[in-house]
Design a protein around this nucleic acid. Structure first.
Lengths: 132, 132
DNA sequence: TTGACTGTATTATACGACTAGTACAGTTGT
DNA sequence: ACAACTGTACTAGTCGTATAATACAGTCAA
């Protein structure tokens, strides 16, 4: 059963997209594997304190991307392959890097300074990982 | 007069926030200076192909943060100081770096690999800067 | 088989972002 | 003074996100 212990809602992006990203990044990291069971819509919505329909929207999109398999009555399961994971990794990385490099360059930050800053603050907000 | 030539709407974040960020990042980069005139609400909305009310919302927030000065009938002007710019830089940088490090760590990317990726793709989508 | 779970679907409500149109008061250059 | 600009304010509508409540059909274990 996939755990949502490290899920944090935080910023202003839609919740259903945050769930989508949480699953995709877990698949890329290898913490979510092919065949893994997902929590039910009702259970996960209660766990995250959000509406079941919001979870359903995220799961429907995962279904549309062929990343999970669902049939009425049974739990949904992950449906991953090496190819899909490689594609996910490339897509997510490209978007993240495009975003950060664009932002920093708009602020006049040099490449070397960007590397220094990211290297310096890499572990920030990451102190509690050994406890969880 | 502040130019919006390099403004790109792109992602799904609200337009008024993108305008806000464009101004703030320009101030941090030094391409937007204290006393610089802003385009009028009507002119800028026509330039960006959006609604005047959306521009007004962005400008009102800049006014709330004391980054611009407006009076009815006259053009709005930037109202910057070294202190404000330093604070802007710190706020924007912290949020950007928090975001990218969080995303990459969720994907299981190591600090060294992150640095390698960012260094590698730094100049992507940046080919036209010497022409502009 | 039965009951508790599952996925799926529907309708209604609320809010923010954005658009559209209009109006009024103040500044600026000629 | 005048015309053209400026900031500001307001109402009304659309769309996407999220919530709330309900319903129905299929799976699964006791």
């Amino acid at each position: 059963m996939i755990s949502f212990d490290t899920f944090r809602s935080s910023d202003g992006t839609p919740i259903y997209l945050q769930i989508l990203l949480y699953i995709k990044r877990g698949a890329v990291a290898g913490t979510i594997l092919d065949g893994d069971e997902l929590p039910s819509r009702r259970v996960l919505s209660a766990l995250l304190g959000i509406n079941p329909n919001t979870v359903q929207k995220a799961f429907r999109l995962l279904e549309d991307e062929d990343l999970i398999e669902s049939q009425t009555g049974a739990k949904s399961v992950m449906k991953l392959s090496e190819d899909k994971i490689a594609k996910l990794r490339e897509d997510l990385l490209r978007e993240d890097i495009r975003s950060i490099t664009g932002s920093l360059r708009q602020m006049g930050i040099s490449r070397d300074e960007a590397i220094r800053l990211i290297s310096q603050f890499w572990d920030d907000g990451n102190e509690r990982n050994d406890i969880d």
